[in-house]
């Protein structure tokens, strides 16, 4: 289980190789990468700027991973979140999971990225031709987190 918050880019293949290495029980590996889009709300986005709360952000991410590993039998988890200035097509975030079987690897990965959106302290500013503005938590992201807390999903976990 490891978390990194960094300005530099990451290499998916290298990260996945490390994540699965030394454990021949791994039968499934799932990864999610979030990318910078060049548009949002009908505006062209030139770049985004991301900041975080050193200390609290790492703690929040570790807590999310701990909750995921309580629900699903995950063998390993890797989260990388970039900060600073990023441009269209840049990688922002990586969530990768390994498990014995695909069901747990998929569910754990989806849970972690959904949860991260509403529970990890990051702030994103979009810089467009018209100026810049800070983004707010999306209602659809809040709904995704509520979904994971619904009784039906809890029981199936």
């Amino acid at each position: 289980m490891s978390v990194s918050i960094q300005e530099s880019d990451f290499d998916l293949a290298a990260e996945l190789n490390t994540l699965r290495s030394g454990n021949s029980k791994v039968g499934a590996m799932v990864s999610f990468i979030g990318l910078v889009r060049d548009f949002n709300l009908n505006e062209t986005v030139d770049s985004i700027y991301l900041e975080y709360y050193p200390g609290m952000t790492e703690k929040a991410l570790n807590k999310i991973i701990a909750e995921a590993t309580e629900r699903w039998n995950l063998l390993n988890v890797r989260v990388i979140h970039r900060i600073g200035r990023l441009y269209a097509n840049d990688q922002i975030v990586l969530v990768a999971t390994t498990a014995l079987h695909r069901g747990e690897a998929f569910a754990g990965c989806e849970f972690i990225i959904d949860y991260l959106k509403t529970a990890a302290p990051f702030w994103k500013k979009e810089e467009t031709g018209e100026g810049s503005h800070w983004l707010e938590t999306r209602e659809t992201d809040v709904q995704r987190m509520e979904y994971w807390h619904s009784d039906k999903v809890r029981k199936s976990a």
Binding site: L116, A120, P121
Partner: peptide, 8 residues
Amino acid sequence: IFSPISGG
């Protein structure tokens, strides 16, 4: 003190 979070 911060604005609503928006990571990922």
